[in-house]
Nucleic acid binder design. Structure first.
Lengths: 257, 257
DNA sequence: GCCTAGGTCCCGTCT
DNA sequence: AGACGGGGCCTAGGC
């Protein structure tokens, strides 16, 4: 970690240019307004904000409250720096879509550049993907005798989460949800079922920890089934087996169709 | 804007406690690991990161790259600060859902508190709502002779974006999209139409700047129509009239049924 | 390149 | 309080 901290007055353009050239991360705190033009358009009147300019060409503007940034530009943006009289301008532009973000400072309370080394591994558990892996390893978690033919079966409108056979050999289409299964999830499953020949041809199963309220009625109308699946149980299955040595793709390879 | 910047060694717990008590915003840069447990679970190994702790009880952890935070806790969290030997701990807990985020620092490169005043107004233009207002003001933007009976007509499955009559007196149900109309949008419109008596009873119109690729076929299958509506045009209509003085609800009030 | 689907999505709005 | 839909959503994975 190196650190750059020039004087605020003349430092702005110099420091910012240096940091961006050297691909450093810059922290700014100051009074500014923000104008965005692109897919939509926004204006933010003057106020005190925190700005992060990252080495990958992303920029994020935070107000002193709220989880989400008020304005931003994703990685890959190109920055332009200018001093306009008493004001400092920082502009971030990207193509595809063509968008521009302009921050105009009247005061800069802090500006500092950092060379940050971050190679730490991030891992997230209890995702929908992990639930799918667990059900592929132990299909009985869905119902006794269930066999997975394919995770991620492509059908014309999109991708079925799990596709398999029940113990009586009927085809089963499973829509998997990590959270409560809601209306859009039910509709998605119904769409898949129609494209696979309708309810006569396949069973439609919603697998989730629970159902959203409005979803229950809709599900019944459409003749779909609900199977409770506990994300924690799925996580347990994965951690208690040597599943890491056997990838999902191996399982797919073992099974034809 | 006031500023707090104590020495790093003993300052961590003191400064952080002071800032949180006084509801100040704190910027931290340091080497840390992060552990999250709640709806899901995550671990992030040691590395250099930027941490924002805001006055409303939100915390955001940023890696030196990427738009999105790697870890966070939304507003309303409660913070706990501790020094554990050589390490500094910052924990953010919230109920509903029960979640906990723990940041463990081995090094702190910068810690600084700010009292930020931000009352600047933020406004986003050309939202779907504004497009709706524009079409309500100038229904000809959809097609000549179109009349709006109701914006936001409630039907059993949800809300129709626009409901009106065409120049020949047929009922028209409009699904409005600010971006390309995609498959879910088409399906939603279809659902509404069925609940209003099907295609024989009403025209189904998708109004959007363009169609997503898969959407075209689906739309044709379902016998729906597409009408191009340009968001920029809508913005022009709104900015060229005294629309800000007349709210959407006034318009709804003026019309019965 | 576009499209599909997930997210600790967050967030407002309405029942 | 839960449910529902939007977002400049962003991001990853397929084709």
């Amino acid at each position: 970690m190196e650190r750059l901290n020039l004087g605020l007055e003349n430092g702005f353009t110099t420091l910012l240019k240096t940091c961006l050239d050297q691909k450093k991360t810059v922290l700014l705190v100051g009074r500014c307004k923000v104008d965005y033009v692109g897919r939509a358009r926004s204006t933010l009147e003057y106020g005190d904000r925190i700005i992060l300019v990252k080495e990958d060409g992303s920029i994020i503007v935070h107000r002193p409250y709220g989880y989400q940034p008020v304005n931003w530009q994703p990685p890959g943006s190109v920055f332009h720096i200018k001093k306009m009289g008493e004001r400092y301008l920082l502009k971030a532009v990207r193509r595809k879509p063509q968008e521009s973000l302009e921050v105009t400072f009247t005061h800069i309370y802090m500006i500092q550049g950092f060379s940050l080394k971050d190679e730490g591994k991030f891992s997230l558990h209890v995702t929908e993907l992990e639930m799918k892996e667990a059900l592929t390893l132990k299909p009985d978690l869905l119902e006794p005798g269930f066999k997975v033919l394919r995770p991620e079966k492509p059908v014309p409108p999109g991708f079925v989460d799990l596709y398999g056979l029940d113990k009586e050999g009927r085809r089963v289409v499973v829509e998997l949800k990590r959270n409560a299964a809601d209306r859009p999830a039910i509709l998605q499953l119904y769409k898949y079922i129609e494209s696979l020949g309708g309810r006569g041809a396949v069973r439609g199963v919603v697998a989730a920890p629970c159902l959203a309220k409005g979803a229950q009625r809709l599900m019944e109308q459409m003749g779909l089934e609900f199977k409770r699946v506990d994300p924690k149980e799925c996580a347990k299955v994965l951690s208690s087996t040597d599943w890491r040595t056997r990838s999902l793709s191996e399982y797919m390879g073992e099974r034809t169709v």
